[in-house]
Simulated assay, not measured.
Amino acid sequence: MEQDLKTEATRILITETAFQQFYKNGFKATSINEIMKATGLSKGAFYHNFKNKDELGVLVVKAELSSIIYEAMITPLLEKGEAKTILKNTFLNKFQAFTNDEKLMGCPVNNLINEIGGSPNLLNEALKGLIDTWVKAVIQIIERGHSDGSIKPETNPQQAAIYLVSSFEGMRGIRKLYQDDTNWNAYSAALENYIDQL
Rank of each mutant, 00 (worst) to 15 (best):
D54R: 04
N124A: 07
F19C: 00
F98Y: 14
T75H: 06
V60E: 12
N121M: 06
E55T: 05
V135P: 05
L92N: 05
A45V: 01
G26H: 11
Y163D: 01
A161I: 07
S31A: 03
E82H: 01
P76T: 00
T39H: 10
N89K: 15
A160C: 15
V58H: 01
D54Q: 09
A186T: 09
M171S: 09
S167Q: 07
I162R: 07
T30L: 04
N110V: 00
E55K: 06
N49V: 03
I162F: 05
S66Q: 08
S147V: 12
L191C: 10
Y194F: 14
I141G: 05
K6G: 04
L78C: 11
F95I: 05
A38L: 08
K84D: 08
I113W: 11
W184E: 11
Q158A: 11
L123S: 02
R11H: 00
E79M: 12
D180W: 06
N49S: 13
S167T: 09
E102I: 02
S147K: 15
I12F: 07
Q158M: 06
E143K: 15
P76S: 04
Q20T: 02
L5N: 11
Q159P: 03
N111D: 02
P76G: 05
Q140K: 14
G44D: 11
I142N: 03
L5V: 04
G129R: 09
V165I: 12
F50V: 03
F168I: 01
S150F: 00
I139C: 08
